[in-house]
Write a protein that binds this DNA or RNA. Structure first.
Lengths: 210, 210
DNA sequence: AATTTTTTGTAAGTATTATTTGAAATATAT
DNA sequence: ATATATTTCAAATAATACTTACAAAAAATT
């Protein structure tokens, strides 16, 4: 139903719009203009209009956008109607924090399975999520039809575990390790590299930011 | 000393190069070609050469790049020579995980102070880092000359705490909250929006990814 | 010593993304 | 009703980033 060829940059902004629309909805706001929205989400108003227009003429000239209309439209676009189950691999410090992290709050995502090697937590429920032994990774992912994983394992084993996950049918990896994973081209990797983010930030402050 | 007008996209890749150069150095590798490097960090080799060339002619034709040369050059560029102290604000689940996260390992960054409201941890040492009461935020940041913060507080208080931090002289914020912070233009905000990343990933898989 | 191979550095071309501009449609005010 | 304000939408332009291509330089080979 939706456009397949919208720009990557636009797609990345959709969740930002979606989240703010939810807030607007909760406060009872009926309509919103691109200018108003621009200020809240810090994206240029023209960019917002163009982003929206990829999906058709969603607004009314001289009026703006109807919040509820827009919201239910984005809900569809972003697959917010059905729950997406994801698995978390590596229940260390960061893994634990993410298990507690409330992805579900204004999203459609739930961590429904976790994997680890540590006997102390394997086959138990941690933060409401069952932890399976890592040996069962491929098999469980396949059985539970999980297509997306969050990877929070030590760097040394990242590639080999990613391989197992791919073997289990995974199509998307949110990769918190510093390794640049090698995956088949139908698998998407989104890197979240915290050291990197910090270093880039510091670089810009020291150089560009006088 | 360094170029101030290198592309943003290049700057974001510098830490990636830097990290891999460290690995090469550790394994004793003397030289590296752009093609080899390209495979490891998954950036096109021509892009790498162009990125490097912003800083002068660092390589030798027919030879490649000398690992140690390159490494010490990037060490300078990325300010890896002196330690940068940063503060973490909000010692919840994610905050704790980040305190344990080893930024220091192959970086120059250390979390040297944390802030929270919880009496149970305030004025104690958590994971090796002193936790100060949030009331002292602005004052302590100023005293300790901390210019970069990691913000892991609840969304409701994010803006007001960011304001305090800015008042304390902060110039860079690694923002883990979903709020799009309003800051003066000489302050840089790097957003790490985990819900967003996951949703974008799922969106691409559902739509683009067949 | 001459030739071949490797590999950088950079220019030119392409693609992607963002911004500007202005006409058209709607709403609001007079 | 008419005029004026908003505000979307789309086209044109500008900026940014990526890719391709190749000459020049150095190294390796014959």
């Amino acid at each position: 139903m939706t456009a397949e060829n919208i720009p990557r940059a636009t797609a990345k902004r959709l969740p930002i719009y979606y989240r703010y629309l939810n807030i607007l909805h909760d406060t009872g706001k009926q309509r919103i203009s691109s200018t108003e929205l621009a200020e809240a989400v810090q994206v240029d108003s023209a960019t917002i209009r163009r982003d929206f227009s990829y999906f058709g003429a969603l607004g009314k000239r001289g009026y703006g956008y109807d919040v509820d209309n827009l919201l239910s439209f984005f809900k569809q676009i972003l697959n917010q109607e059905h729950l997406t189950n994801v698995a978390l691999i590596g229940v260390g410090n960061l893994g634990h924090a993410l298990l507690n992290f409330n992805f579900h709050k204004d999203g459609n995502v739930r961590i429904s399975a976790a994997f680890d090697t540590d006997d102390k937590i394997v086959n138990k429920i941690e933060d409401g999520v069952p932890v399976y032994p890592i040996e069962e990774l491929s098999h469980q992912l396949h059985d539970q039809q999980i297509k997306v994983i969050i990877l929070t394992v030590p760097a040394q084993v990242a590639q080999s575990i990613a391989d197992d996950a791919v073997a289990g049918g995974v199509k998307g990896i949110l990769n918190f390790t510093p390794i640049r994973l090698q995956v088949p081209e139908d698998v998407l990797v989104q890197n979240v590299d915290l050291t990197n983010e910090l270093q880039t930030l510091i670089y810009f402050i020291e150089n560009f930011g006088k």
